[in-house]
């Protein structure tokens, strides 16, 4: 068995002025892995995710990526065009607020089509069918493909955003608190959906959350962050069941058993 390493992160550091965002982060991500990033508010989770997904350029450090085509590349020195192209098809960000990831002026189907059009042939039926397929997969009613995002509930908007991102068959998906703004019962259903899709399509994912139940059911391995640094890392159930660092022990003991 030889699983491909698709991301190598070394000493990744970001400061906002004098304020630490994240510091000295190291990890490797392999194809098909789901990596969770947990930690308390302000610990640097979003900062790290933004550095990884190219939204901000870190103050220091290295990110090597290995794409499906072509060898290992230094992500941080890619030209803007290549980064944008990566984000439009090969990678995808699922934002906490679906409105940041959706174009509200175009229909549900149009939103999915926009992403597909970055990579696919210009064929209307293909866009239509793929759109419906992904709506069904994320448990939306495909008959609502022509409705506009604002006519959907928050949970459905989030499903739509996930459909849109997954439709291009991305290599890495980044999610920052994908269920953060939703009420608890909706959260659970969306997580079910994400979980079942992830099992199906072997996507690689980095997900930021402070919900340990999410982490337990969704992720393979964990980075536990505190004050901008990673205090513990490892197999998810190992970190949760046999935490080594005092902060991780505090984190796992302060919640109900999951």
């Amino acid at each position: 068995m030889n699983i491909k390493k698709i991301m190598h992160v070394e000493n990744l550091t970001h400061f906002y002025g004098n304020q630490i965002g994240c510091k000295g982060i190291n990890f490797d991500l392999y194809k098909g892995e789901i990596l969770g990033i947990v930690g308390e508010s302000g610990s640097g989770k979003s900062t790290l995710l933004k550095c990884l997904s190219g939204e901000i350029s870190p103050s220091a450090g290295k990110i090597n990526i290995s794409l499906d085509q072509g060898g290992v590349k230094d992500f941080l020195s890619l030209p803007e065009q290549e980064k944008r192209q990566l984000m439009r098809s090969m990678w995808g960000i699922v934002h906490q607020n679906p409105r940041d990831g959706l174009n509200l002026r175009i229909s549900a189907g149009g939103n999915i089509a926009e992403r597909l059009l970055n990579v696919s042939e210009k064929n209307y039926s293909f866009l239509r069918n793929t759109g419906k397929y992904w709506m069904e997969k994320t448990e939306m009613d495909p008959d609502r493909i022509d409705e506009f995002p604002l006519s959907f509930s928050g949970g459905m908007q989030q499903r739509l955003q996930i459909s849109k991102i997954l439709s291009s068959n991305p290599q890495i998906v980044f999610m920052d608190e994908p269920t953060g703004g939703l009420d608890v019962s909706v959260q659970a259903k969306i997580l079910d959906t994400i979980k079942s899709i992830v099992r199906d399509i072997n996507v690689t994912m980095i997900i930021v959350t402070h919900d340990l139940a999410v982490v337990r059911f969704l992720t393979d391995k964990l980075l536990v962050m505190k004050d901008g640094i990673v205090v513990e890392t490892g197999l998810t159930d190992r970190v949760l069941d046999d935490p080594q660092h005092s902060y991780t022990q505090l984190l796992t003991s302060s919640i109900l058993q999951v």
Binding site: R84, Q85, N103, G110, A113, D146
Partner: peptide
């Protein structure tokens, strides 16, 4: 960057409507 997906989305929207 020749990122013209939006333009085709406009046509997509007209066909679907």
């Amino acid at each position: 960057y020749k990122e013209y997906a939006l333009m085709h989305v406009k046509l997509y929207e007209e066909i679907s409507q």
